[in-house]
Design a protein around this nucleic acid. Structure first.
Lengths: 234, 234
DNA sequence: TAGGCGTCGATTGTCGACACTTTTGGCTTG
DNA sequence: CAAGCCAAAAGTGTCGACAATCGACGCCTA
């Protein structure tokens, strides 16, 4: 007999609003790497594990599909999205596009409380880097960028950023350690914040470009090492 | 060599995927203005009308919700999204952000066939403007911008653009005539294409900004006139 | 022995049903 | 006559069931 349901221990859910809860749990499982890229997400298995019926699971899967976390294969089910090097390229292109805009906009609207929030986040990153906590660093990194997008004051932009980040986390979640030198990644954020505080669009864009370029190379390298020439079947 | 199915060009069968079909029908109804903003989309009614059960309708509705076309109110159902002036602002902010990037990228990758496609689309717009076909003008306008995004060679960017365009069509679909002067809207596209062909990023951005600014004002004006101080009930 | 074919189990796509909630419409009451 | 309340109706959230389809395994054939 073949191993059926994933061995991921998911607690049984309470009633009402099951779809969102299922979507969240599946998202967590994916971005945390417990559901690997390419893994099948069988509705029946998930439903059994959560103690619910298949209907809410299906709806949640559709949601995640539209977010790019799952891939739907008609009559065959849902699978965790596999990201090629090209996918990562596309995602970072969009991140660049979105975060440039967000940072410039954030600078225009910067309030003292927003500025303080960004400073605190940066301080947290430095602290985590000093303590060499690679998992927390990645999370803090993400939160810093999210704060910038939040500061831009465009709810849709924030949702867009969240979507891009989720997809990238499919690959980032596969490893605990994203950066060789955590201190460096904390340092590369400093000029970004400085540029935002100073409010020079050109400098903001330049530093964002540099910083995201670094992350892009890291993740690109990672994807290379993870996909040892898997032939694509179109 | 992989000897698979013969290269005989057989069309893929129309999968009996009800969810996509329902999603498409609902989308069409919304962007064509047959379903007005705020209108209730009752699953049971839609299912009855289409002669199917509620399950596929629910899944389709979830899809449209994640695309921003519908709004879900727990235990009360789905409603066509109502766009405030602020929503339109957000959408145009993102359009600006996305299309600047797309145009610059399109210029970098411009091939003769792409260039010709853009020229043909522009010629079509001029022709439609001359014939004063306001509905077709809006569609051709959309297609021109979509081509630019397609030319950027980033599938996600294109999907993103489609999503923004869909949402905007909620309001645009309410009227047949978007622009006072169709000829003008055709003319404002010309410098955009010229800048892309010339490949000057600054000029591209400048012209995109100007052109989208025009559309933004038009739609903004429209939204103002459509929402005569409707009190928001959160 | 390698490759194609048919059968079987497993899973998806869709459906109808049931409980509970919200809305509607009428009736009572101040 | 308006406001409030109660009951009926409609609609959502969820479930279990059934047919259609896919993948895997084993068998048959060349």
């Amino acid at each position: 007999m073949r191993a059926m349901s994933p061995p991921v221990g998911l607690p049984v859910l309470a009633e009402s609003d099951l779809v969102r809860q299922v979507a969240r749990r599946l998202t967590d499982a994916i971005v945390q790497g417990r559901l690997a890229p390419g893994a099948k997400v069988a509705e029946a298995a998930v439903a059994r594990e959560l103690g619910i019926s298949r209907a809410p699971v299906r709806e949640a899967a559709r949601l995640l599909e539209s977010q790019g976390l799952l891939r739907a294969s008609p009559r065959r089910g849902f699978f965790v999205r596999e990201l090629s090097a090209r996918d990562v390229d596309e995602l970072y292109d969009l991140r660049l596009c979105v975060e440039r805009h967000a940072a410039v906009e954030a600078a225009r609207r910067l309030t003292p409380s927003l500025r303080d929030a960004l400073r605190r986040q940066l301080a947290l990153m430095r602290e985590l880097a000093r303590r060499d906590d690679p998992v927390a660093i990645v999370e803090a990194d993400y939160q810093f960028h999210r704060l910038v997008c939040e500061a831009a004051g465009n709810a849709r932009l924030l949702r867009l950023f969240d979507g891009l980040a989720s997809e990238l986390r499919i690959v980032i979640g596969l490893i605990g350690r994203l950066y060789d030198d955590p201190e460096e990644i904390a340092r590369t954020h400093e000029p970004v914040l400085e540029a935002i505080e100073a409010g020079h669009p050109e400098r903001i864009v330049a530093h964002i470009d540099h910083h995201i370029g670094v992350a892009r190379r890291e993740v690109g390298r990672l994807v290379q090492s993870l996909t040892p020439t898997i032939p694509e079947i179109p």
